[in-house]
Design a protein around this nucleic acid. Structure first.
Lengths: 331, 331
DNA sequence: ATGAAAGCGCTAACAT
DNA sequence: ATGTTAGCGCTTTCAT
């Protein structure tokens, strides 16, 4: 592997000079610059990143903290973000993390050991000291799909979106509306809160027995949860699932049990993942502006890293209720 | 940032000793080890990766070449591989690449500029010189989901699997079987070849007008292709889709056109993605051993990187026909 | 405009 | 068992 020294020696200059031209700095004789550039080209020399990173104390790498249970929505968002990051010239480090203290601590340790330029949180962390540690590291951070005070975040108005989703159901005449929620994360609580508020607005009594907490926000969890819900009773005409992934499992079980969607039960999801429009029936859901979330997340982080002023600490993006085939008027 | 020196000074030993315990080496007084470990814990010291990388002359980073059209199957495989890579302590660099010369060339250039430990190809490259350039870089490479002579690869017997899939259809009495294939990649050709061979075996004449080439291997492409196929005629009782992603779009359109699956048309897919078991109807398909492919891919690469002998250059993993609800006896 | 030299934080001989 | 020391490849003062 050819190093800066080799180049220097061959051209007959010092390493400093080579370093200067390699980094496009001023104060170097045009002739020598030419020569050096030519030799770099010829030898295929590329600077050793590790060495640069060490002295520069920066890595051109951003960490992405991702939930260990990586559902379809998150996979889609991730691949958009990754695409943007790549276009900015950043590398990516993954940090799969479970929603528990041990996993979070370990994640923090790894986060520290890498000289990251910044980190994107795709999953909320429960341990408060995590955020403090991050800010102590002076590490630019941006939260995507959730908010945390003090760090820039990109997300939608979860509660209001949930209200809209459930309003859609009540507007269709449904009164007995069950919800499948996830047990973790703020967005889960917000989506549940929206559910309750929409019920209030429609004059429907809140009934905790209509809410079931799934283990994760995945299709598999949705399936288990729906089975459990059915074990209680069949006294409902609509289901509001906290994510499309959950809704997928929900509809599957409903069908297995001979319940028609939306004939017998209306189902509304949340996220508008890719397959929502391919499902049978097509899923009514809340669309999160994935493409824009990804691009805003990346841009915000890049600005923070390069020291530019952040537009706003919190960016609330518009969502949209997409009415498809999984919901119908209560008969 | 606390460094190895700080620890050494505080405990009153040399940096070597600290380095030894940090790396779990032998020859360290148990007492001192204790002390050092305690201080590491207390101070939250974590070794600086850049420094390690430099002296170790490795980056602990592997590049993953991924198709720009990143379908569900690939997303699942990727997330498994990524998880394994993480457990080996590798980082990841992405290389999204389109299936065309320009994109491949650019990818190669980037591949060279990074000091990678190895690269995983999740997409076949059409430019032969790409592989040569890679081997000139002495870069360990492994191909996952396809094979290329000279580089270790992990995949199933695509053609035989396709034969099994179509045999299942002919065994059910179907004679008029259409195929939706993708236009690129060897696996597409193999899956098509298997289709034809199964037809041969059943004494069914090959009919190229029964094959339609989708632009990509995604649900959206499946939808477009199925629409186009329907424009020709409805003279078929079964569809074989080259991927589950395609099948998803296919079934969607069939349903829209009032054709029942499997009542009127049987559909078989390929890959067995997560949602195959949630679809309505559940999808009959070929299961690729995703979990094992991911783990073998990672292990093989790791072995190549660490200079251990490779088991075999080519690992052909077992697949399995999973019969679910989207196929039925021809009525 | 350019070179010498001092690190960056760590590992690995080599001595002891 | 442990310390000393020499780099790893690069950037960046600081002289000149």
């Amino acid at each position: 592997m050819v190093s800066i020294k080799d180049i220097a020696k061959q051209v007959g200059v010092s390493v400093s000079t080579v370093s200067r031209v390699a980094n496009g700095k001023k104060y170097v004789n045009p002739k020598k610059r030419e020569q050096i550039l030519a030799l770099i080209e010829e030898t295929g020399y590329v600077p050793n990143q590790a060495a640069r990173n060490m002295v520069l104390r920066r890595s051109f790498t951003v960490g992405i903290v991702i939930p260990y249970t990586f559902n379809m929505f998150q996979r889609q968002l991730f691949s958009i973000i990754e695409r943007h990051l790549e276009s900015f010239g950043y590398h990516t480090l993954f940090f799969f993390v479970k929603f528990d203290g041990a996993s979070e601590k370990e994640c923090l340790a790894r986060l520290k050991s890498e000289k990251l330029d910044g980190v994107i949180l795709l999953q909320e962390i429960r341990d408060q000291s995590f955020y403090e540690a991050l800010s102590r590291l002076q590490l630019p951070v941006v939260a995507s799909t959730f908010s945390f005070s003090g760090i820039p975040s990109i997300h939608i108005d979860e509660e209001q979106a949930a209200i809209d989703a459930v309003n859609h159901l009540t507007g269709l005449g449904h009164r007995k509306i069950n919800m499948i929620c996830g047990s973790d994360f703020t967005f889960g609580r917000q989506r549940m809160e929206g559910y309750y508020k929409a019920l209030d607005a429609a004059g429907i009594e809140r009934d905790t027995s209509r809410v079931l907490f799934a283990r994760y926000y995945t299709a598999e969890s949705g399936m288990y949860s729906m089975r459990e819900l059915l074990l209680r009773n069949r006294d409902f005409s609509a289901i509001y699932a906290a994510t499309d992934d959950l809704a997928l499992g929900v509809i599957r079980i409903l069908k297995d049990e001979g319940l028609r969607v939306p004939g017998d039960v209306s189902v509304v999801g949340f996220d508008d993942i890719e397959i929502a429009d391919y499902m049978i029936p097509r899923l009514t859901t809340i669309r999160q502006p994935l493409e824009e979330m990804g691009s805003q997340t990346t841009q915000t982080l890049h600005r923070a890293i390069t020291g530019n002023p952040l537009y706003t600490a919190e960016q609330i993006l518009p969502y949209k209720l997409i009415i498809r085939e999984s919901t119908a008027r209560k008969n």
